[in-house]
Simulated scan of single mutants.
Amino acid sequence: MKHHLDTLGSCTLVGAGPGDPDLLTLKAVKAIHAATVLFVDDLVNDAILGYARPDARIVHVGKRGGCKSTPQAFIEKLMITAVREGETVVRLKGGDPFIFGRGGEEVEHLREAGIECTVVNGITAGLAAVTSLGVPLTHRDHAQGVVFVTGHAKTGAGAAEDPTDWRALAATAHDARLTLVIYMGVAGAGHIQAELLHSLPGATPVAVIQHASLPHQRHIVTTLARLQAGIAEAGLASPSVIVVGDVLQGLAAAQLPAGRFGT
């Protein structure tokens, strides 16, 4: 695809949603179809790329926790170079670009390079996960708010061992009646469980949803006291979302007595 090097292109960060292509926004579909180059994250459903132009260049820049991935700085360099070459760039990210998608970092680096970026929101996995179970994140009787938090600690020189104060978060969730939605928390579920139990009752209902919104979605409904055991028994792994809170009471009451994951 030929471009004039003196014509600056454009860049759009697009949320691809939790996986189901039908959950894309119309604005996302339009942006994908207009792109000449797409930089695609690892968890983006291949079916979504069917909306791209036949002549679009698709570059997979996978980033998945615990696996070999493309360095973030290199992805940003590729994006900047493509825009400077006049390309219509779409950075396609799973879920929402601004919820644990490093969208904020990318926008900052693009601005430093003199490039303004448009952002198209996507349905984040935490929302899709509970919706798939017919459960709300907030409820006038059970939860006055919701907290989205990552269970994956930042690594590298100078990084704290556990940047999230789970005990303080649990106390706040208990006192303020909040639902906790934990992304990337399966690997550290034992530690998270132990810390949350300092302020939340062991009987607090919990759901763990893997591959939210996709045909092969799996989930368990259990209690905080059995979180790690339930995950191990069910063989759940990443990508999964852990939801903690009383909004799950109705679902737990319907499933736990007859299920293998109850107390």
Rank of each mutant, 00 (worst) to 15 (best):
G17T: 04
H152N: 13
T172D: 14
A157P: 15
V149Q: 02
R57M: 14
R111I: 02
A113L: 07
A173Q: 06
F39A: 05
I115M: 05
P21Y: 11
V90P: 08
A232F: 06
L78G: 01
T138H: 01
G158L: 06
P205R: 06
R53I: 04
G9N: 13
Q72C: 06
I123V: 15
E106N: 06
Q72I: 11
R140G: 06
L38V: 05
S132F: 03
A252V: 05
E112T: 14
P163Q: 00
K154V: 11
K154E: 15
V37G: 01
E112C: 10
G126I: 04
D46F: 11
A143M: 07
A252K: 02
L178I: 08
A253Q: 13
G103R: 09
A31R: 12
H33F: 12
H198R: 01
D41E: 04
V107R: 15
H191C: 01
S132V: 01
A258H: 08
Y51S: 02
T124M: 01
L127F: 03
S238Y: 08
G126V: 04
E108L: 12
P239T: 03
K63I: 05
R260Q: 15
H3C: 14
T12Y: 00
G122Y: 10
E233C: 00
L23Y: 08
V14F: 07
P97W: 00
G134E: 13
L8D: 10
V186K: 03
A253R: 09
G122S: 03
A237P: 06
D175K: 13
Q193L: 05
G19F: 07
V186H: 06
R167F: 00
T223G: 06
Q249I: 13
S132L: 03
A16G: 11
Y183H: 09
V119G: 05
T36W: 00
A73P: 00
D55T: 15
